[in-house]
């Protein structure tokens, strides 16, 4: 079914799409081009002169141990956030789906974190986990005896940003899982109950497979979120430290460019990020229509 709208005025349709095109060009295409271009130059710190160096910037970053370590950090961070988020939000959604149908208040509370700005979420966790004044840090020490100080301990810092990013993203996942669960016809679950499947078996053999499209979609969304969308959260919470323990690839782009004033390296890194995003998008579009759909 094709629905076409015909305009009598030949200019009007272009005017209607113009805002979107302008936004795309100004905020997306142009910066991308700039990044691509800058990646091929070395610029002095004050921006007075620059010199074409070809792929030297790329050679430099891939030789940089700090940058390679950021890959590892990003991978650990991204996978942990994705797995944690999806497991927790699926659990919450299943619980909500059971009690819900009546109470929307529960759902509203679970959605709230998504409305919190990333930087504010970062500050929130910064205060809660602060080794001197943070209440959660105090609890951890009181309960387990371990000293919590993510300023010194790199692993603790990484755990902190993982928890903060997960907390932030759970609401979004929860919403999609809940919608997915509610779109599964009740009769299917009832039929399985009559077919002698217990609650756990019903979940794993009927509900979970039918959620596959939602799950796959969220998997990609969460990976993209964790890899590229967590800069402000990490920056506000740990600032990438200590000793680069929480420097993911995006944080590294910022540090090289705005802190280190090495625009060429920063641009080269963002080109690498671009390639990764593109690869993930292709993956998503290639597989989302196949396999996952039953």
């Amino acid at each position: 079914m094709e629905k076409r709208v015909f305009f009598r005025d030949p200019v009007l349709p272009y005017l209607l799409v113009a805002p979107q095109i302008v936004i795309t060009v100004v905020f997306f295409l142009w910066p991308s081009y700039q990044a691509l271009e800058s990646a091929l130059y070395v610029e002095d710190a004050f921006g007075f002169s620059r010199q074409f160096v070809g792929l030297d910037n790329f050679r430099a970053i891939f030789a940089d141990k700090v940058y390679l370590r950021a890959f590892g950090v990003t991978l650990v961070f991204g996978l942990s956030v994705t797995v944690l988020t999806m497991a927790l939000s699926l659990g919450l959604a299943v619980a909500a789906d059971r009690v819900l149908r009546a109470s929307t208040a529960y759902r509203t509370f679970l959605i709230w974190p998504y409305a919190v700005a990333p930087a504010i979420a970062g500050v929130l966790w910064y205060f809660m986990m602060n080794p001197t004044i943070g209440i959660v840090a105090y609890w951890i020490e009181a309960l387990s005896g371990t000293e919590w100080n993510h300023y010194v301990n790199g692993n603790q810092a990484l755990i902190l940003v993982i928890i903060a990013a997960t907390w932030k993203q759970i609401s979004y996942n929860f919403l999609f899982f809940l919608a997915g669960l509610q779109s599964i016809p009740r009769a299917l679950v009832e039929a399985a109950a009559i077919d002698r499947a217990g609650p756990a078996r019903r979940f794993w053999t009927i509900i979970f497979p039918l959620l596959a499209p939602t799950t796959f979609f969220l998997l990609v969304v969460n990976l993209v979120y964790a890899f590229f969308d967590t800069f402000s959260l990490i920056d506000a919470t740990t600032n990438g430290g200590p000793a680069n323990a929480t420097s993911t690839l995006v944080v590294k782009v910022y540090q090289s460019g705005f802190v280190g004033q090495d625009y060429g390296a920063s641009a080269a890194q963002s080109v690498v990020l671009m390639v990764i995003v593109m690869a993930m998008t292709v993956l998503q579009f290639r597989y989302i229509d196949r396999r996952v759909n039953y």
Binding site: P185, A187, L188, E190, A191, A192, I194, I206, P209, L210, A212, Y294
Partner: peptide, 13 residues
């Protein structure tokens, strides 16, 4: 018991 549903409720996957 066994039940046949109005919308068949076949497991689509």
């Amino acid at each position: 018991i066994a039940m046949v549903f109005q919308n068949y409720a076949l497991y689509p996957h």
